[in-house]
Amino acid sequence: MLIRLVHAIGASFDEILAPSVNPDDDEVTDRIKQLITQCSRRDQELILGLIDKMLDVKEEKQ
């Protein structure tokens, strides 16, 4: 039952069993977490690649 509930809300067991208090979490982060679970594995990998590239470019500019 717990497994189904965790999957239904799009969370991980880590989030449920040991939630972290992160002051930077906001609506955008929560929305991204919610939406990413609806994407295919391939789409998730593409999004991850995009984020990695964005951070690389940001780091290069600094």
Score class of each variant (00 low, 15 high):
residue 3 I to W: 02
residue 39 C to E: 00
residue 2 L to Y: 09
residue 6 V to E: 09
residue 18 A to N: 15
residue 20 S to I: 14
residue 17 L to E: 10
residue 40 S to H: 01
residue 40 S to T: 14
residue 8 A to S: 15
residue 32 I to P: 06
residue 45 E to Y: 02
residue 9 I to A: 10
residue 40 S to L: 01
residue 62 Q to N: 07
residue 35 L to N: 07
residue 25 D to A: 08
residue 12 S to F: 05
residue 27 E to D: 11
residue 23 P to S: 12
residue 40 S to K: 04
residue 18 A to P: 06
residue 12 S to R: 13
residue 45 E to P: 03
residue 30 D to N: 12
residue 4 R to M: 11
residue 54 M to Y: 02
residue 30 D to Q: 13
residue 48 L to K: 05
residue 46 L to Q: 09
residue 20 S to K: 15
residue 15 E to H: 11
residue 50 L to C: 01
residue 38 Q to Y: 10
residue 35 L to F: 05
residue 16 I to F: 07
residue 11 A to F: 07
residue 15 E to T: 12
residue 33 K to S: 09
residue 61 K to D: 03
residue 42 R to Q: 07
residue 48 L to M: 03
residue 52 D to T: 03
residue 50 L to W: 01
residue 33 K to P: 01
residue 9 I to W: 10
residue 5 L to E: 14
residue 39 C to K: 05
residue 1 M to I: 13
residue 37 T to I: 10
residue 49 G to M: 06
residue 46 L to W: 01
residue 44 Q to L: 07
residue 18 A to T: 15
residue 50 L to V: 02
residue 4 R to V: 12
residue 48 L to W: 07
residue 11 A to D: 08
residue 9 I to G: 10
residue 40 S to W: 04
residue 5 L to F: 14
residue 13 F to K: 01
residue 56 D to C: 03
residue 58 K to C: 00
residue 11 A to C: 14
residue 26 D to I: 06
residue 52 D to Q: 03
residue 43 D to C: 04
residue 14 D to Y: 06
residue 59 E to T: 01
residue 20 S to N: 14
residue 19 P to A: 05
residue 24 D to Y: 13
residue 36 I to F: 04
residue 48 L to Q: 05
residue 11 A to S: 15
residue 51 I to P: 00
residue 30 D to I: 13
residue 36 I to Q: 07
residue 54 M to A: 04
residue 17 L to H: 11
residue 8 A to V: 09
residue 47 I to F: 05
residue 48 L to P: 02
residue 29 T to F: 07
residue 7 H to M: 13
residue 33 K to Q: 09
residue 62 Q to F: 05
residue 26 D to W: 03
residue 53 K to W: 05
residue 18 A to G: 04
residue 18 A to R: 14
residue 2 L to R: 14
residue 12 S to G: 11
residue 60 E to P: 08
residue 1 M to S: 15
residue 39 C to D: 04
residue 4 R to H: 10
residue 26 D to C: 12
residue 4 R to C: 12
residue 50 L to E: 05
residue 49 G to N: 06
residue 38 Q to C: 04
